[in-house]
């Protein structure tokens, strides 16, 4: 089979693989959190059972066409973002768009979900969305600062180029020369993943799981899939930018390691108030990122 055919096969196969692995990530997350809390925890494949159950539920309530389309758009948006990020040396579609394209593709999913939540018309959901967007305004700035520093360092915004420059062992990973940027991006990632100090949008005790408040059955199932892919994509950005990609196996190991760090923080942290979270992003991580950016600009 020639290279193009192989790539197309991977494009079709990769989403399925990532969904399954992402669901295992979520299951592992529950297990690890449980162990940290001195519990036994559910089996690691628990989230797969959850998704099967959610899709087998009958008659979830529907509030209108956009309400149904919202989770679909969220899922599809994440699916297309997935194809624009190289996974384990598989370029997929990433020759057709660079990091900035990916950043904006990543927005389709939350936007679709936000529109769906809007039609649901539950004020809790909308508060959740307003919080999520505010949080996004916070972490996007940090994210962009560290991405710009990587682009400045390599002179390219293409994932494959950046990965290629990091080839040749652990010592070549950008996490070493761009340590401050990587640190800032990891903080931003915590917000992107919605892990603990930054889980205001879905805080179950405050806004009744926020955006998900009206979604049940297969809607929630789609959102679970979206979340599963999202975790892989979001940690994948970090892996590709700072940890040098790697073969398929190592790529997922690295991505899980990034997720694991986020989980550990998640397990022991209380929740910020949304204003505090926003202010936090624009102070410490942004400052760290800016120092990193300035260092890159000077040293280059």
């Amino acid at each position: 089979m020639n290279a193009v055919g192989l790539n197309i096969t991977w494009i079709i196969f990769m989403p399925i693989l990532v969904i399954i692995i992402g669901l295992f990530y979520l299951g592992a997350a529950r297990k690890i959190t449980a162990r940290i809390q001195n519990r036994y925890g559910p089996p690691i494949y628990q989230n797969i059972i959850d998704v099967i159950k959610l899709f087998s539920k009958k008659n979830p309530t529907n509030h209108g066409v956009m309400f149904s389309l919202g989770p679909v758009m969220a899922f599809s948006g994440m699916l297309i973002s997935l194809l624009f990020i190289p996974i384990g040396n598989k370029a997929l579609l990433s020759f057709n768009g660079d990091i900035i394209v990916l950043l904006y593709l990543l927005v389709i999913a939350p936007l679709g979900m936000a529109l769906g939540v809007g039609e649901g018309g539950n004020p809790m959901g909308t508060i959740g969305i307003a919080r999520a967007l505010t949080l996004m305004l916070g972490y996007e700035v940090v994210l962009v600062i560290s991405i710009i520093s990587v682009i400045l360092y390599t002179g390219s915004a293409s994932f494959m180029e950046i990965i290629k420059m990091q080839s040749g062992g652990v010592g070549h990973w950008f996490i070493w020369p761009l340590f401050l940027s990587a640190l800032a991006m990891d903080m931003a990632l915590q917000g992107m993943l919605g892990e603990k100090p930054f889980d205001q949008p879905v805080a179950p005790h405050e806004v009744a799981s926020g955006p998900m408040v009206e979604f049940g059955g297969k809607y929630l199932g789609l959102l679970q899939l979206y979340h599963a892919i999202g975790i892989v994509v979001e940690t994948g950005i970090f892996v590709n930018l700072f940890l040098g990609g790697g073969t398929l196996f190592w790529w997922f190991v690295k991505s899980f390691a990034v997720f694991f760090v986020a989980l550990l923080i998640n397990a022991v942290m209380p929740r910020f108030r949304i204003g505090q979270a926003f202010a936090f992003f624009w102070t410490y991580p942004a400052a760290i990122g800016l120092i990193g950016l300035i260092l890159v600009a000077i040293l280059k």
């Binding site: 979830p60 309530t61 209108g64 679909v72 899922f75 297969k218 199932g221």
Partner: peptide, 18 residues
Amino acid sequence: ALIVGLIVYFIGGRVRKA
């Protein structure tokens, strides 16, 4: 991706109108 999403959506079966 949207078509895939819609297929997954329709696999999920019927919904109840609010």
